[in-house]
Write a protein that binds this DNA or RNA. Sequence first.
DNA 1: TATAAAAGTTAGACGAACCTAACAAATGTA
DNA 2: TACATTTGTTAGGTTCGTCTAACTTTTATA
Lengths: 220, 220
Amino acid sequence: MLSYTEENYLKALLMLSFQNEERPEAGTNEMAAYLGVKPATATDMLKKLKEKELVSYQKYGKILLTELGRKKGVAILRKHRLWETFLYEKLDFSWDEVHEVAEQLEHIQSEKLVNKLEEFLDYPDFDPHGDPIPKANGDIPVVDKVLLAEITAAENCKVVAVKDTSTLFLQYLEKLNITIGTKIRVLEVIDFDGSLNIQIENEEPRSVSMKFAESLFVKR
Amino acid sequence: MLSYTEENYLKALLMLSFQNEERPEAGTNEMAAYLGVKPATATDMLKKLKEKELVSYQKYGKILLTELGRKKGVAILRKHRLWETFLYEKLDFSWDEVHEVAEQLEHIQSEKLVNKLEEFLDYPDFDPHGDPIPKANGDIPVVDKVLLAEITAAENCKVVAVKDTSTLFLQYLEKLNITIGTKIRVLEVIDFDGSLNIQIENEEPRSVSMKFAESLFVKR
DNA sequence: TATAAAAGTTAGACGAACCTAACAAATGTA
DNA sequence: TACATTTGTTAGGTTCGTCTAACTTTTATA
């Protein structure tokens, strides 16, 4: 049985591994920063996780999840994203409110609960932010998504996920009437500053910044 | 902010106070037994709860919740019973499975979550065991219920709640096809051993023990 | 390549929630 | 009422997750 805290470390390592798929190791400071603890604390925990064979690393080296550790981490992520979906779809929580509560709900221990919840939600593949929800067997649905910023010429696409899940960004999206599934037509790319002229659904064309375009995932 | 553990102590004291409405104090050993900890541990926690003005007691005296402590306890009980209802009604958990998971869910901190959940469940007054669900303002719905054992002559009644929530009893009820709302006709009371001949809905008459009759609440 | 900066570790401490063992107070009964 | 039993408290210890301060190793750069 893993403690609440151990679970958080595993999830953090999993999330960090997603940030750089080719080199999925993390550093102690990086992990500590992600979790909001001091590096010394992370080192202590790492020793414990290594002891339990959830993590493979050696002193002053990089941290990598073991097969077991990854599996546990994926299970927590699954719960997190199913709960987010529940809050959003069934309880009318907004985009930016779901995360905080799901952080708590993801630690509820009950195999049956998570599977029944999934069934109740009709086996969703993606959460309200467009992120894939791992299946009970550990499989993670894939999307061929690209950053809006990677589109370099006039082209049509559809919003499939957000990269930045900050409240500020999510609220901006809401103001622009953008949600998962919204159609976007890229009209023009301004080389000078990387900004884009886009048309959201059939609204009036408008300009968005490069920072914006780097925070949103779309499907061509 | 209360810790997970502090919340459990408050809920325990509240539950113990229900067991004897006229004299709602509890003892240290009683409380420790309820929570599955040693008396010494309970004493420590009591000091902390007194410090926080959640409990009123003095050394070697009886324990009583303060107004504030009671309010916090009721809020936890409200969450517990709403979650039980959710699990039972929406996720097809059985009578005897809901408690354990609700014990975890009751500690999730989100005012919005509990109120939205209540709305989603359509403002239920009673949980799957027939126990009243406290309202957001702290009011607790009342039922005029009596133990089946208190019925002393041939009479009709309806099951409104269970007193004993043990798995063994709940599973026995399921076997007998008894659930909240089931109509029971008391045919005969056997003075010798307190057992009853009853008719469940329109099934064949059968006998149940005094112990059984003392575990079930009905409404005349 | 020497050294300064960054990254990571160790040692020692703390609060929370638990324990055991020994003690003190309250209570019930001979 | 005295004393045995029950009930409750204190003292001291453990584990978990956290911290700070001092130290070591790795890395980046002048």
